[in-house]
């Protein structure tokens, strides 16, 4: 599969997905670490893509979303933002709601 299709597939087939440096268990960058921690704290499952383990995605994700840096958080197939926006929304309680609604919606679709 073409790399842009692989990115699109990851974004659209997961209610919540983070493209990050490292993994939620072993983050390789402070920004990726903080963003994935905020997602974890929302209390729902989320998918992740380790961009350091996938050089093609690392190279091409910035042009997929017109967003130059990592991490990138997608909910309901849309870019929510990077670390700053993810944390800001978490602090306001907006991220938790968005994540819960997205997971509930994808669960309803699957059943």
């Amino acid at each position: 599969m073409d790399v842009m299709d692989r990115i699109k597939d990851a974004v659209e087939s997961n209610a919540v997905v983070i493209f990050m440096k490292g993994t939620p268990q072993m983050p390789q960058c402070g920004f990726s670490s903080r963003a994935s921690q905020a997602l974890s704290a929302c209390g729902e499952e989320f998918a992740y893509v380790n961009v350091l383990a996938d050089p093609e995605v690392f190279q091409n994700l910035p042009r997929y979303a017109n967003w130059p840096t990592f991490p990138q958080v997608y909910i309901n197939g849309e870019l929510v933002g990077g670390c700053d926006i993810t944390l800001e929304m978490f602090q306001k309680g907006e991220l938790q709601k968005l994540v819960k609604d997205a997971v509930a919606k994808s669960g309803a679709k699957a059943s």
Binding site: G82, D84, I85
Partner: peptide, 9 residues
């Protein structure tokens, strides 16, 4: 927020 960050980038 996403638009603002894109503008700055």
């Amino acid at each position: 927020l996403v638009e603002r960050h894109r503008m700055v980038y």
